[in-house]
Amino acid sequence: MSIKKFLSWSLVILWMALIFHLSHQPATVSNELSTGITELIVKTVEKIAPNAEFDIRSFNNIVRKNAHFFAYLVLGMLVINALRRSGVPGYRSVLITLGICVLYAISDEIHQLFIPGRSGEVRDVLIDSTGASLGVAIYWAASRLVKGSKTKDRN
């Protein structure tokens, strides 16, 4: 196994472990983390735009849902990269990546059913799946750009 292949799959596993760890936190701990991030964002925005008004509760919900989206955007990029380094070609790698990410999102929501104060939500699976899909699209577009620039450099 090549070092790049090993590292790419290691990153997938580590990122999945991080998602699992964050999902395993009871609701109170999870809410403290997202509230802290929300407050940091609000303070930063208030420095830039002092007259801005925020509904902290609504904004905290947006931060939480964006965290889902971002976590799975990264997971999608990591999985497709690992599959491509493992020799899985073209659209097959896209379909397998989306399958892995959607199944992980479903298992993550089921996992949360057993955590105090947490719930499993279909809406979160949809947010996660959308993030993974965008991650795959970004990876795909970036790889096409890199491949195109390498072709130009050879000519």
Results as ranks from 00 to 15, higher is better:
residue 79 V to P: 05
residue 64 R to H: 06
residue 71 A to V: 07
residue 63 V to T: 09
residue 79 V to Y: 12
residue 102 V to S: 04
residue 101 C to V: 14
residue 67 A to R: 05
residue 83 L to H: 10
residue 101 C to Q: 01
residue 66 N to V: 08
residue 99 G to D: 00
residue 57 R to E: 14
residue 66 N to S: 14
residue 69 F to P: 03
residue 77 M to G: 15
residue 66 N to E: 11
residue 76 G to F: 04
residue 66 N to L: 14
residue 86 S to E: 12
residue 55 D to I: 11
residue 80 I to E: 13
residue 101 C to T: 02
residue 88 V to C: 05
residue 80 I to S: 04
residue 81 N to A: 13
residue 77 M to Q: 00
residue 92 R to M: 14
residue 102 V to I: 15
residue 66 N to P: 03
residue 102 V to F: 14
residue 90 G to P: 01
residue 57 R to S: 15
residue 75 L to T: 07
residue 92 R to G: 15
residue 69 F to L: 14
residue 66 N to C: 12
residue 89 P to V: 07
residue 96 I to D: 09
residue 68 H to N: 01
residue 58 S to H: 10
residue 93 S to V: 12
residue 61 N to T: 11
residue 101 C to G: 10
residue 61 N to S: 10
residue 101 C to D: 06
residue 89 P to I: 08
residue 65 K to C: 13
residue 99 G to M: 00
residue 98 L to C: 03
residue 76 G to Y: 05
residue 65 K to W: 15
residue 72 Y to P: 02
residue 98 L to F: 08
residue 102 V to P: 03
residue 72 Y to F: 11
residue 91 Y to F: 13
residue 70 F to V: 09
residue 92 R to I: 15
residue 79 V to N: 07
residue 59 F to Y: 06
residue 75 L to D: 02
residue 68 H to D: 09
residue 77 M to H: 04
residue 67 A to N: 06
residue 92 R to S: 13
residue 97 T to G: 06
residue 56 I to Y: 10
